[in-house]
Structures are given as structure tokens and as C-alpha cells.
Amino acid sequence: MIECKDIKKEYKTGDETTQVLKGLTFTINDGEYVAIMGPSGSGKSTLMHILGALDTPTSGTYFLDGKDVSKLGDHELADIRKEKVGFVFQAFNLLPRATVVRNVALPLVYAGVPKQEREKIAKKALIQAGFDEARFNHLSNQLSGGQMQRVAIARALVNNPSLLLADEPTGNLDTKTGEIVLQTFEKLNEQGHTIILITHEEDVAKHARRIIHIKDGEIIKDEKIK
């Protein structure tokens, strides 16, 4: 469960202070599929970084599964990311010249899981993400965009996170492949995964069950659509 209370984020450049997030308060329950939507510069990426424990807010509190994440140091944030968050990026960010299975298993390396077990879990995650079993040992740079994003989704799932964070996951894909990827998220949500989708496209956001509209660092609308 995600509980954000009056989240503010400021950046200082010289004497000027830019307020990127101006006090956001919202709750996302377990099992929800939420799209955070807004134009570029709205602060949605900054919010994603805070929700993903990559960054901390200037003020306000963020509880993830009952734990206050907003005031942690680098070291604990890394632990939170390792245990509770799965990222899916627009640019996939796979290791080139590494096999599909190795890419997916990478988060488990830092979790200290032994190699054989790692591969077993990785394969399970790949099947969950709807990845073709025949390509498990292909190198990641031999795959198409849609396949790469499925590998990335499997990698995000592999440590069984509380939260799946997808940052413009269809941004680098054509409409048809993007559609397939979004269907994958829907399926995962049906299986009980909490998913937060960050996007600027209405068509993409519509796939979620709830949309939080952000503009100029403020929530302008929070709607349930399904």
C-alpha cells in the first residue's frame, strides 16, 4: 500500500527555487492499476522517482507497505528498491550481450539468490510476462522492441515486488506492440500485482483502472474509470 501525504519536491538552482511537486496527497491500495498522467514538465517523472525510492521528497511523508521511505538514506533506499519495487523503463535498459534469462535474473544477483534458483525464478517471471520460451537463451540485443519490453517486465517481476512502476513503457514501441505490452500489464494486475503506469498519452492511461492527472506539480483530477 502506498500512502503519500503532502509530498513536496523542490530544486534549487542558484538563488531560485523551483517547486516541482506542490504537496501531493493520495493513497494507492494493493492490487490497484493506476496511471499517473500529465504533460511533460508536470512533475510525473519526479513523482515516479519518489514512488520508486530512487529519490526522496523535500517534505511530506511517503509510506510504502507501512514503512516511511521519505527520509531514508542511499543505502536503505537501495534495499527498498531491491525488495519492493520493480521498474519498467521506456528504453528497456537491458544488458546487451547478455542472455534473456541473465537479464531477468539480475535483480536476484543483488538479493544474494544462488544461481540455479535465480534461473528458475527468472524463467517463471518470463512466462508470466508472456515471453516465448524458445528465446530464453537469446541475447537481449537480438530481440525486437516488444520482446525486449517483455524481458524488462519479467525483470521487474522477478523479485516479487509490492509495486510495479512502468515509466512510458510503450514510448519506444509501435501502437500494435504497445497494445500487447499493455495487455500484459492488465493480466499481471488481474493476478494481483499493484501497477503504476506513468504516461502522457491518454490512450495508454485508459488501460488502467484509475487515472491520477497531474499538472504543474498538483493533482488536478483523480478518477476511477473501470
Binding site: L54, A78, L106, Y110, R155
Partner: peptide, 16 residues
Amino acid sequence: TREIGLRKAIGAQRTD
């Protein structure tokens, strides 16, 4: 750089 970013995003510590 991106690989390092990814490794950190998935939970690698600075010492890692």
C-alpha cells in the same frame, strides 16, 4: 552509465 543506473534501480548498493 545507463547500465550503472539500472543496477542501482534494481537494488545494487554503492559498494556493489
